[in-house]
Nucleic acid binder design. Structure first.
Lengths: 343, 343
DNA sequence: TCAACTAATTGAATCGTTTCAATAGAACAA
DNA sequence: TTGTTCTATTGAAACGATTCAATTAGTTGA
């Protein structure tokens, strides 16, 4: 037996029921001031009666553009990105746009498939926190007419807009703080270095050590991911090594890693934080303050990144002639808590 | 001066360049096996050369349905919902769907505007964690032909599918655990009671107290939101009261509240957890384990909720004749950590 | 009463796909 | 040669909105 599934009413059906032409219905929807009030009334009644809902695909097809933006993030379950998404979504709502979210899971092919999807959907533009070097992709998209703004990564002004946080400065701030606490054997925990953010934080950290007059050293403990689990593994390895080999401070490339390290130190071993080893993270996610030892961190304005990116994208979409590509760099901020407070 | 903005190439342009008809190009795109291999080659070359990207609006208009699903959550920056979203998104990708995310921020009008938007977009279906009673909305949408699955809330089978967690059981488990630890003056922290989840957890908690043979009591401390901030305020108020009035255990309606309470107890006051007051939360977000005092909690399978909801929605969309509405209820799980471990 | 104007309404054309009946062409048999 | 079966390709029609030139109705002034 055939599926009954009655078709949705179209603007035609509304026109017929209201006894007007389809052009008039369209005007009621889009330019009500051009239509006589009682005609508006008749049409409204018909719309109600039929449960008519405008078909956005048809509208978009005619208009050629859409009020939807695409957002591709590395990992939505990471609080930094969920804040960013939240900021983006709020800014979009402001300008009457909506946001389609794609989660690339650090995976280039998923990233690519979201970009392709968004392009087919003819989104107004795309905000992306790229997995990897992304200039070619951005250039290609832009060449075909899709606007792209890059967040959390700097790209060349010739290519497009980008909003980022100065990760080198952040790395420097973190290590300068550790040095100021009298720490000298510093370990940077993070990876992979293909993440520009991680490389920059390490670079900042290294430069701070180099610039200091002390005999401080820094070594890099690589991780495969920026997750709590990865941090826990590193923490366990450190705790298991002989005490003389311990660093006296750890700078983790993000808070999730730092939290993992803390967990290992507290549960599996008897490492005292910050007395034996101080720990500082990066991102200042909402839980840094509530961590087992309240965690010092470098605060990034995640929601602001998201909303600024959307604002710039909307500007580019709506006034392409006025728009000039810009690179905005926010400065991060040191947040000191117990995990690094000198004894 | 006019904006140059060259139009995107259409299937027509591709056909012209490749020297074939537009129907053939369409076949290359959708049924390549029907087309001679060297024709496919010619067309592929033309597509490449022009940078042709299929216009999904046109395709959707013709097809009448889309491969996009809508997801409306209460608060994406809450880890429970970001896990849920992640699960939904993964399940959708599996079935070649993509997910548009809407954030209702506990706000009925934002919820409504997302539902309207999704309906105009003719999404394949909607997964929603409703702010409030939602039966009428769901019935209305369904009546107009949009499939809806409700998550994190039970609705009647006559109305549609829903996936939820048994919050009454969860509330009961939490309080039974507290009672088993010898606690008797229990406070339930949470609100507003308009959230069915909160009301259910309280109901479960109350029933556990009632069923116990002990002289235990429970009182309800209302909050306006389920956030860390709200929890901190409650914690401060309790710590500031005279010690004889303190509860000896707190059951918070979610982990964020519990974390806030812990923060207040640790930083602003000298309340010992769990010796003075035990604390248990709800959701078992990733940070419960890493909290300042590792937090006992009731675990909800958030990602599983999301993926199951999407699976059911896809089933309903793709095989409406086979589909039967179902109500799936997952059982929560008690996770015991230091914050409630008897001295 | 007619011209001149404004306000309201009309409906054909358009956007870019997919679909499908019709056609062309090739291969083979009789 | 003619007929039969294939396979490959064609192109008109349809989806449902928006747009805009054309039309109709209504008002005013002379």
């Amino acid at each position: 037996m055939p599926i009954p599934k009655k078709p949705r009413p179209s603007i035609q059906d509304v026109a017929r029921l209201a006894g007007v032409s389809l052009g008039t219905v369209s005007n009621v929807l889009n330019n009500p001031e051009r239509v006589k009030p009682d005609t508006v009334g008749k049409v409204a009644k018909a719309i109600d009666q039929l449960g008519f809902v405008r078909n956005d695909a048809a509208r978009q097809l005619k208009a050629g553009r859409s009020k939807t933006l695409g957002l591709v993030v590395l990992d939505i379950s990471n609080p930094f990105f969920s804040s960013l998404a939240r900021g983006a979504e709020d800014a979009a709502a402001q300008g009457n746009y909506s946001v389609i979210l794609g989660n690339s899971s650090d995976d280039l092919s998923r990233e690519a498939s979201y970009m392709a999807l968004f392009e087919e959907q003819r989104v107004g533009g795309i905000v992306i926190s790229p997995v990897d070097g992304v200039s070619e992709t951005v250039t290609a998209l832009r060449g075909r007419g899709t606007n792209v703004v890059v967040v959390d990564r700097h790209i060349d002004a010739a290519i497009g807009c980008s909003i980022s946080v100065d990760d080198i400065a952040g790395g420097r701030m973190a290590v300068e703080h550790l040095l100021a606490q009298g720490k000298t054997k510093i370990a940077f925990v993070g990876g992979p270095l293909e993440f520009q953010q991680v490389a920059d934080r390490l670079a900042g950290a290294t430069s701070a050590v180099a610039a200091s007059s002390s005999k401080a050293t820094i070594k890099h403990i690589k991780t495969k991911a920026l997750s709590v689990i990865a941090g826990r593994e590193v923490g366990e390895a450190i705790a298991a090594s002989t005490k003389s080999e311990w660093p006296d401070a750890i700078f983790a490339a993000n808070d999730l890693l730092a939290v993992g390290v803390l967990q290992a130190f507290m549960f599996k071993a008897q490492v005292r934080v910050p007395q034996d080893i101080a720990v500082i993270g990066y991102d200042d996610i909402a839980f840094a303050e509530a961590a087992i030892v309240p965690l010092s961190s470098i605060r990034q304005p995640a929601a602001l990144l998201g909303s600024t990116a959307v604002d710039m994208l909307v500007e580019e979409v709506e006034s392409p002639s006025v728009h000039k590509h810009r690179q905005i760099t926010f400065q991060p901020e040191l947040v000191v808590r117990e995990s690094t407070l000198g004894v």
